[in-house]
């Protein structure tokens, strides 16, 4: 059951990710990107990470994609002309296939081992995934959390300054 779910959503994710790179109209690319993100959220749920799946839907499929589609429609971009990117196609395809081959050999050769932590499936089910994330975030990773909030503030100010007509 779980493997059928994995293969189904992995196939949909791969095909829609490929269509993101191939679609002429940027709006079609953005919609396929939403499909990929939702498939990834389902995969996160199969990995016992429901909070990450919720964040994926809210932040990526909600906020970032809405921002992208908003900008596409604001700039009123047309569809791409076909002959404009055929020259780089062969080189790009060759390079990405080589990269896939190299990562594949490294994944097949290595064994992912390490010191096992204490977060087992049973612990996730008894405490709850969100509680565990919050506990780690507000104790061990408190300083990076505050730095991330400052980063977001700087990004807001930067976006406003950049899109002003005259500074």
């Amino acid at each position: 059951m779980l493997s059928i779910l994995f293969y189904l959503f992995a196939t949909v994710a791969i095909f829609s990710a490929f269509y993101v790179t191939k679609a002429r109209n940027p709006v079609n690319s953005a919609l396929c990107l939403v499909t990929t993100f939702i498939c990834f959220a389902v995969l996160y749920i199969t990995l016992d990470a429901p909070f990450m799946a919720a964040i994926q839907i809210i932040v990526y499929a909600g906020a970032i994609i809405v921002l992208i589609i908003f900008v596409i429609m604001l700039l009123n971009l047309g569809t791409a002309v076909k002959k404009r990117y055929t020259h780089a196609l062969a080189w790009g395809a060759a390079l990405s296939v080589i990269m896939l081959f190299i990562t594949n050999t490294f994944i097949r050769r290595g064994v992912p081992t390490g010191k096992l932590g204490d977060v087992t499936t049973q612990m996730i089910h008894s405490y709850g995934h969100t509680e565990l994330i919050g506990m780690a975030l507000f104790t061990e990773f408190l300083l990076p959390f505050e730095i991330a909030s400052i980063l977001l503030l700087v990004a807001i100010v930067g976006a406003i300054i950049l899109s002003k007509r005259q500074v």
């Binding site: 990710a17 490929f18 790179t21 940027p26 791409a80 404009r84 390079l95 990405s96 896939l100």
Partner: peptide, 20 residues
């Protein structure tokens, strides 16, 4: 998926598609 993303970054000309 990472390789597909690399392929898109290397072949597309539209900056928003590269961003995606």
């Amino acid at each position: 998926i990472f390789s597909i993303g690399t392929f898109g970054v290397l072949t597309r000309k539209n900056a928003i598609v590269i961003f995606m």
